[in-house]
Design a binder for these strands. Structure first.
Lengths: 204, 204
DNA sequence: TGACTCCTACCTATCAGTAGGTAGGTTAAT
DNA sequence: ATTAACCTACCTACTGATAGGTAGGAGTCA
């Protein structure tokens, strides 16, 4: 069969196993230490190949950086999915959103991609900055749509424009993950999340 | 006189001029690019001395990093000052706090020290992490005191514990600076700040 | 079937550049 | 004479990147 056990990974269509592992590990390192804080050597050691072999998959570091961001963007798109059209769905998506960041905060060593790269912005090559802009655009478009629908369906309060609520949630959650990590306790994230629910939800 | 023009800077008591300039520039670079994103060479070029001369003032990079944080902490202490004991003073301090971060956001290229170092935490030597913990402790203690007094004096709402309000404000403001910088427009910060006033102030 | 070519996925060895850091000398004010 | 404040010259370690080679699978054709 084509799926032998010890053979070299089949070239086949799209993404070798090694390639995927490189991106996996590089993503972890990026979220933990930042773009300037990890090297091809770190990745090579973790994956178990030589430094030069990474260049076979990603000619330059910025190509690897771009691949991480693009993959995260795809994941964002089909994890978040289209905004629901009932109050229950909106409420569930809002909860899921908060729980997603709570999970990151609970791990204790990483930041979310948005917070990470917005902090690293000044040291990011254009080739990474570019897909990151798309990531950010998708993310905030989704949030804006969620709050627009949520206000219309009576899930969220209407004292503030939905676009402003969306902006605030994104920023607060990003800051909360960082605060939580630097204090070494998820509880800080939870206390902020609780306030955000109370602030936005009509029935918290 | 002691302030000749072209002579070597007088050793005098505490902090040479060059030493201060090194810390000044290093601080700017730190806030812009992060701890792993600037080098002794960058500083030397900007100050107009040789790389090795920086080592005369700061033996290791972590000493320089620690000096930046400690100085920022002192500045925090006497910029913020003790929390007032009238409603007017509290209100004024709250406004000043928000305007302080708005100024950073308006510059467009830097983050606040708290946000910066909490993002860099994983690449920070212990010698820098340590004064940063003190900085963070001072900062959040001041905020907690502000909200405690502010609730008592009828400046802030009482629907949420004052400690939680303080935590939320710190995180939100930190996230807002980052979001604002990565979108390249202070207006994003202002929209968040407006919401924070509305959220916490009894009479916004 | 075997020979030939081409491919992917690695390897070793090395590059120039830069990081932080050190040794030791010079200058000049106290 | 001492000492602070620089300098030149250098070091080691590591960065991302390149050159050139090898092993082995896949496709083609006599």
């Amino acid at each position: 069969m084509s799926t032998d056990l010890k053979t070299r990974p089949t070239p086949s269509e799209g993404g070798t196993d090694t390639r995927r592992r490189i991106v996996d590990i590089a993503e972890q390192l990026l979220l933990e230490r930042g773009y300037a804080g990890f090297s091809y050597r770190d990745i090579a050691d973790a994956v178990g190949i030589r430094k030069a072999s990474i260049h076979h998959h990603f000619a330059a570091k910025e190509d690897l950086g771009a691949a991480i961001v693009e993959r995260a963007r795809e994941r964002l798109l089909d994890t978040r999915g289209p905004v629901g059209d009932t109050a229950e769905e909106i409420q569930r998506q809002f909860d899921r959103y908060l729980r997603f960041f709570e999970k990151i905060a609970a791990q204790g060593d990483k930041l979310c991609l948005g917070g990470r790269l917005s902090a690293d912005l000044a040291v990011l090559p254009e080739a990474v900055r570019d897909p990151f802009r798309h990531f950010t655009a998708d993310h905030s478009a989704w949030l804006a749509a969620l709050f627009e629908a949520g206000q219309r369906l009576g899930v969220f309060k209407r004292d503030v424009a939905s676009a402003d609520q969306a902006l605030m949630l994104g920023a607060a959650v990003q800051g909360a993950v960082q605060v939580s990590r630097s204090r070494g306790d998820v509880e800080y994230f939870r206390r902020i999340a609780r306030q955000l629910r109370q602030q936005f939800l009509l029935t918290p």
